[in-house]
Every structure is written in structure tokens, then in C-alpha cells.
Design a protein around this nucleic acid. Structure first.
Lengths: 176, 176
DNA sequence: TTTAATTTTCAATAAATTTTGAAAGTTAAA
DNA sequence: TTTAACTTTCAAAATTTATTGAAAATTAAA
């Protein structure tokens, strides 16, 4: 069964969707995201309708366990959700279509999971009870790290909290 | 031999440096960067003096091939450089100490390697010669993607080109 | 209740990535 | 030149990460 089109096979569109799913999966792996997870997400985004686990398994040719696990993870990232279809026992899934929201959601999660731990870890490393020039140098390094990391943290925070147009306007002004 | 301190073992500092190298290696893997590469970088950053391949091999207990390969990659990222020490035949390596520069350099490389290909790939996917509501929907999705990705690209560009204090000032204003 | 459909778990397996180490390649001093 | 110190390469091995599939758990209808 073809997931993508409702009737009459429109090859060009199906091809583009196929390619999109593949491309997205490839790119995601650069960013420490599991390839299959990215592909499941792209599939849901491109499909335009809720899909069941079985449909996802078939479209991506992956096992039930794999599909289930990646769907759970995507829900954990807050970028897909279950959708109940009346008269159906199966669970269906849909991806949030708002791309700006998607971007903010990913940024939010990565900030929480990856930036915050860096900050506390660096803060801890600054507390050395030895004296000496080498210690001073190391503490200076940690302070510089903390300084830049905090700035990144602030920028992420700004983006997460901002409305798309507001941020775009501000940034555009800065670029000019 | 201990790489970190010149004389008398100052345990607390050495411990902190050790922990820093380990922590940084761990965190890097979240971002799709090889663990050893991050550790080599952290070691150079923390050591405060140029290190030879042999010293790095010993400190991190890694093979010559591994050390060599990761040093080449770090040079490719533009965040470490060779340093010639007079009277020495061996090559020595140092890490750029300016953390803001480091951040910008990484951003610059990742933008080039990962964001630019995404943009061209999405642009290509928008060219579908079929008509129909499903095609329109997909083209809309690709346009939204392109829109957000271009914004991210612009923000990265802004950060890369900016001086630390200038950017900080602007962002601080936005946050207020 | 039972029963059957569906989801979840997880040990075993497969795939991808990283690391090793020794041989080949370079380079500079003798 | 030769020689020896040093660097690079790369196929094989080790390690890490992802995937499978079948059994266990859960859920809702009968």
C-alpha cells in the first residue's frame, strides 16, 4: 500500500516525499539524532494524515519494536502526538505541522538536556582549592567557557520564547 | 609522565583537568562529534602548553593512528594548530584559547557542512511538476522548512561575523 | 470474566563507527 | 646518498549503537 497518495499514483510527488524522508534522516545523524527517528518524523510530516504503527513499519521497512521505540522518543521530544481515530482500536500518530514550533521545541529540549548539564559541570570544575598560576589559568579557562556557554543559553532561551515574526524582525534589524 | 603540572603533583588541579577532558568528551558525542576528538581538544586546551602526538597518546591512552587522525580533523575544524618548537623534530599542537573564537569557528564549519546542504536539498524538493492539493501541501511544507532554515542560517551568520561584546550587547537588549 | 487486538519490552543480532597497530611514506640530519 | 626519526595510511579488530522479533504486558470489546 502506498501511504502517500490517495488515488492514481502521482510519481513526482511520491518521489519528492520519499527523497525528503531519506534526506532528513541523513541530515539528522549529523546532529546526534537517530536516523530512523528522523525518518519517522519526516514521514509523518509529509504524509499529511495520521499514520498507524503498521503503516510506518511498512513505509520505512522497519520492525515493530523499532517503530514503537522511535515513536515514543518523538513523543518525548514533544514533536509528534497520538491521535485517536473514531471506530479504530489502533493508535495513530501525527506530526506538528508548524515548523517554527518544531524548531523551538527541538531547541528547548536540547537546551535542557545538553546545555544545562554543561553549565553545571563547568561551574563545578571552577572550585579548586589549590593556589598557583596553573590553577588560575585553568579557572580562567573555565570562566571563559561558562561565559560563552551562558550566552548560547541566553540566545536559545530568547529564540524559544519568541514569536517567529518578532524574532525575525529583530534579527533582520541587527543584520542590516 | 604527567602532562598537566610542571613540578610537585597538585592533585586537585590535575583532577579537575582530568574531569574536564572526560566531561567534554562525553558532551561532544551529543553533538555528533567523535568522543576522542573532543578529548584531544580539551586536553590541549587545558594543558596550557604545546603537546606532541606522543604526549597526547600517553595522556589519553590512545593509539598513534587514532591520535594522528583526530589531530588532523581538529586542524580541519580550524580549532587547533601545529606549533614548531625550536630544536625539536616532532610536531607539537596547541588549541586556540579564545573561547568565543572557538564557538564561532565550530558554528562556521557546521553551518557550511550541515545547514547549507539542507537549504539546497529543500530548494530542490520544491520543484515538483505535478498539480494537485497534495502537491500544494507538500510544497507549502518545503517552503516553511526553507523559511525557518534560512532564519537559522542568518542567525548563525550574524553570530559568526559578530564581535563578542557587540552581539552580547544586542542580545541583552532583546532579552530585557 | 474470557478473548483477541494491540502495544511494550528486551535479549539476541546486525550494522555502523571507532580504534588499533604495523607497514608504507616522508622528511631532515648525518 | 643513507639512515633514523617521525607521520600517515588503512585493513582488521573492537566497541558502540541500532534493530529485530518473539514473548510478555496491556487494553478494550465480546
Amino acid at each position: 500500500m502506498c501511504i502517500f497518495v490517495s488515488e492514481k499514483t502521482i510519481m513526482k510527488l511520491a518521489e519528492a516525499k520519499e527523497k525528503y524522508v531519506q534526506t532528513w534522516g541523513m541530515l539528522a545523524s549529523n546532529w546526534g539524532i537517530n536516523r530512523t527517528m528522523a525518518m519517522v518524523h519526516a514521514l509523518l510530516l509529509a504524509s499529511g494524515k495520521p499514520l498507524s504503527t503498521d503503516e510506518i513499519m511498512e513505509a520505512l521497512m522497519i520492525s515493530r519494536g523499532n517503530a514503537n521505540m522511535n515513536l515514543r522518543d518523538l513523543i518525548g521530544w514533544g514533536i509528534i502526538r497520538k491521535e485517536i481515530i473514531r471506530g479504530e482500536r489502533k493508535e495513530y500518530f501525527v506530526a506538528e505541522k508548524d515548523i517554527w514550533f518544531l524548531f523551538k521545541q527541538i531547541l528547548k529540549e536540547r537546551r535542557k538536556r545538553e546545555i544545562e548539564p554543561v553549565i553545571s559541570s563547568i561551574e563545578e570544575l571552577r572550585t579548586i582549592d589549590e593556589k598557583g598560576p596553573e590553577t588560575d589559568e585553568f579557572i580562567k579557562l573555565m570562566s571563559d567557557m561558562l561565559n560563552v556557554t551562558s550566552k548560547i543559553n541566553n540566545i536559545m532561551d530568547l529564540a524559544i520564547k519568541s514569536d517567529e515574526h518578532w524574532l525575525l524582525g529583530k534579527i533582520t534589524n541587527l543584520i542590516k
